[in-house]
Amino acid sequence: MRFAVTIFPGSNCDIDCIHAVEDVLNASVTPVWHQESDLSRYDAIILPGGFSYGDYLRTGVLASFSPVMEGVKKAAREGKLVIGICNGFQILTEVGLLPGALRRNSRLKFRCNFQTLRVENARTPFTCDYEQGELISIPIAHGEGNYYCDDATLAELKRNNQIVFTYAGENPNGSVSDIAGIINREGNVLGMMPHPERAILDWMGSKDGARVFTSMLQYWKENCGAA
């Protein structure tokens, strides 16, 4: 299974994501600069966290118009796995691959700490290695993770089981329905504010994020062929 990690000017979790794929899965992973648009060689695309284009204008918006996003949209249409983490989630909403938008945190504070999440849907390619309803500990680090969508969209997300992760206990940013991560209707594009790549080894304080990556590999093996 071949992974790509997109890099925009201002991305800063790209190396962590590359390490996560290498350390957890021992799989092939290639950094891809935002000027490239051909992602046809890869089976899964990771949009990492950071502050692409300095968060100018709105978080994620300028990155959403870069050439690599044409490749990401194509990969998504083809059913390949696409995961956006933190700033990557913001980019996926701006480009329209996921509904809603991410606003400034309700109490204006940049939140950087471990957060307990509930796995609301363990039947996705990104969560099949978790138990339904499992509580996991993964860090967040964002100032604009306050997920918003209108009531009709929220009802649709609930109806289609598109809410994948919620904040269990304290909601750190004011997101609607405590949403921490959602998936698209087709089930191959995930966006999440918490950073699974920062919770893959014991010394990090939690290994709960590793199973996002093992889930992707497991799904791919079962549905797309060999490793």
Partner: peptide
């Protein structure tokens, strides 16, 4: 398309 996000 760019300057505003119609969602919010």
């Amino acid at each position: 398309k760019v300057l505003s996000n119609p969602v919010t």
